[in-house]
Amino acid sequence: MTLTTRAVLSGVTQTLQALDAILDKAVEQATERKIDPAVLLSSRLAPDMLPFTRQIQLACDFAKNAVARVGGGENPKFPDEETTVPELKARIAKVLAFVAAADDAALDAGLAKDVTFPRGASATVTMTGLNYLTRFALPNFYFHAATAHGILRENGIQIGKGDFLKGVFDI
């Protein structure tokens, strides 16, 4: 059996869809408890960590950047301007559409090619597409997705591992 890049990216799609559903639960529970959702969006797990909104933005960025860089296509720029849950959901939807539209053959071919990407303000790093995807992009994607989930849990939103893994068993 040959594992395709699309198969690997199916986990990204599933996790983005789960984050979208988690956002719905967060709004529903915040409304029931008379909590302004903006409070959740600015929450963080620790003082030196980024807030919830930025975690969602970064999860989206790592997903789209991986597809664009490995697939060799145009990398859309999404300004980090979201301040509401509907805006975050719209960003997730744009990334899901971008991932779905990616060329499978280009993604598979890109695993053997070099990918150069920025690291910090003034440095770049080059590695194979396979190493970029498996050792950098995907770990960062899942880190930010799990951190967003953790922030909501820390704030009393009743979600669990099953919410994070939503869709896993729908295959």
Rank of each mutant, 00 (worst) to 15 (best):
F136K: 01
G110W: 03
V168M: 15
K166A: 15
D170L: 13
C60Y: 03
K64E: 11
S122I: 12
A146E: 02
F136H: 11
K77N: 14
K166N: 13
T116I: 12
F169D: 13
L107V: 04
V67G: 11
N155Q: 15
L130A: 15
T124M: 08
G71E: 08
I151H: 03
T83P: 03
F141Y: 11
K64T: 09
V99L: 10
Q57F: 07
P86R: 10
H149N: 04
V99P: 04
T124Q: 14
I56N: 00
A100T: 12
D114A: 15
I151T: 07
F62H: 15
G150A: 14
Q55T: 00
L96D: 08
T147D: 00
H144K: 06
V95Y: 07
C60T: 10
E82F: 05
G162C: 00
G150Q: 04
K161A: 11
I151Y: 03
V125L: 14
R54A: 10
I159E: 07
L133T: 02
I151D: 03
N131T: 14
G73I: 02
V115K: 06
K94M: 10
A59L: 01
A66K: 06
E82W: 02
R69I: 11
L138T: 06
N75S: 14
A148P: 00
I171V: 12
P118R: 10
E74I: 07
A63M: 08
D114E: 15
A102P: 01
A145V: 03
A123K: 14
Y142S: 10
P118T: 07
F78Y: 15
A137M: 05
D104F: 01
K64Q: 13
N75M: 14
L133A: 06
A90E: 14
R69G: 06
L96S: 07
V125N: 08
Q158P: 00
E82R: 11
T53Y: 02
I92P: 01
T134C: 10
G72E: 09
G110S: 11
L138W: 02
E87M: 11
E87S: 11
G120A: 09
N65G: 14
L107I: 01
A123D: 14
D61V: 04
F143P: 06
A112R: 10
D163R: 01
A105V: 12
E81G: 07
G156T: 05
V70Y: 05
F143D: 11
N65R: 13
V115Y: 09
D61W: 08
L88T: 06
L138N: 08
P86D: 12
A106M: 04
D108S: 02
L130M: 13
I171E: 12
M127R: 06
E82Y: 04
G73W: 03
G72T: 07
A101E: 12
F169A: 14
A97R: 05
